[in-house]
């Protein structure tokens, strides 16, 4: 072989080194691309995870409020006739009730038993109003979430309107003797002496409580489909999250493979270059 001229083997070794260099370069580029995809995937995963947590919070809160509302309605319905029957028996001036009271003949001959019944009825009415206002505000906080703006089977405005009490006395005027508006009821509950309320006032208070229970019951019935709607969205998003998770794992695996491929290609390039130099020295080409 003539000194200074590269032979076939040399060219093959050079070409092989070049190929591995190119492979190493391509692997590095792929690593960068997959790293980018991984980053985007991680963002999407974090966003979706946060969204799911938010939806779960909404679902749990709605469920808790629904249970609380049901308990209030149940308790109110059980109590709805008890104290009014006591009052009717004690205070009615109709003969049949007076005679019936005499026949039963077990009443304490004093004012305080009936005063206690009235006082307890008054307090529990105020408590009921507070409880309903608190529940309504809790629901309103949840309904501020964006998800409730696009539901076609449920209207937040309707809920707000129904539980605001704005048109109760106008809409249900047939249920009341004296209560015409909120001012009247507020005055009766907070500003009037208990003994100054007559049987018609107590009848109105009883009907008012029953109306509150009825409206709360009606609105609470509409919450369950809402919870199911949110839960369905959660299930769909959790499925998407799982897909994203495994996609992230896959991208990570490919990234690692390409890193290793890049390293191996670089080493092979060096290896073949060393073989080439060894061959050139041995064959006295250089």
């Amino acid at each position: 072989m003539r000194r200074g001229n590269l032979n076939k083997v040399s060219y093959i070794l050079i070409i092989v080194s070049a190929i591995f260099t190119i492979v190493s370069y391509i692997s590095d580029q792929l690593v960068i691309r997959y790293e980018n995809n991984l980053r985007l995937n991680k963002f999407a995963y974090q966003n979706l995870d946060t969204e799911i947590k938010s939806l779960k919070m909404i679902s749990n809160n709605l469920t808790s409020l629904e249970v609380e509302s049901t308990v209030i309605v149940g308790a109110e319905l059980r109590e709805r006739n008890f104290w009014i029957k006591n009052l009717i028996l004690f205070e009615s001036d109709k003969k049949r009730f007076i005679n019936h009271k005499k026949n039963i003949n077990i009443f304490i001959d004093d004012d305080f038993p009936i005063f206690n019944i009235k006082w307890r009825a008054m307090q529990s009415t105020k408590d009921l109003i507070d409880e309903v206002v608190e529940i309504r505000n809790s629901y309103r906080n949840i309904f501020n979430e964006g998800i409730f703006n696009n539901i076609d089977f449920y209207s937040v405005d309707e809920f707000n309107n129904n539980l605001s009490g704005n048109d109760w006395f106008k809409k249900y005027s047939d249920k009341f003797y004296k209560f015409k508006n909120w001012d009247v009821i507020t005055s009766k509950l907070y500003d009037t002496e208990i003994n100054d309320l007559d049987i018609k006032d107590w009848a109105d208070i009883r009907n008012f409580r029953l109306l509150v229970a009825e409206i709360l019951f009606t609105e609470t019935k509409k919450i369950m489909p809402l919870i199911e709607y949110v839960d369905k969205i959660i299930v769909d998003k959790e499925y998407d999250l799982e897909i994203l998770f495994f996609e992230t794992k896959k991208i990570n695996s490919y990234k690692n493979y390409f890193i290793l491929t890049g390293i191996i290609s670089q080493i092979l390039t060096l290896f073949f270059l060393l073989i080439l130099f060894r061959y050139l020295i041995k064959e006295r080409i250089i």
């Binding site: 006739n81 009014i84 029957k85 009717i88 028996l89 009615s92 009730f97 019936h100 047939d174 249920k175 009848a203 009883r206 009907n207 029953l210 109306l211 229970a213 009825e214």
Partner: peptide, 12 residues
């Protein structure tokens, strides 16, 4: 959800 107190009173 009966608002008629006559019915309630009769039960007594």
């Amino acid at each position: 959800f009966n608002y008629d107190l006559n019915i309630v009173a009769d039960e007594i």
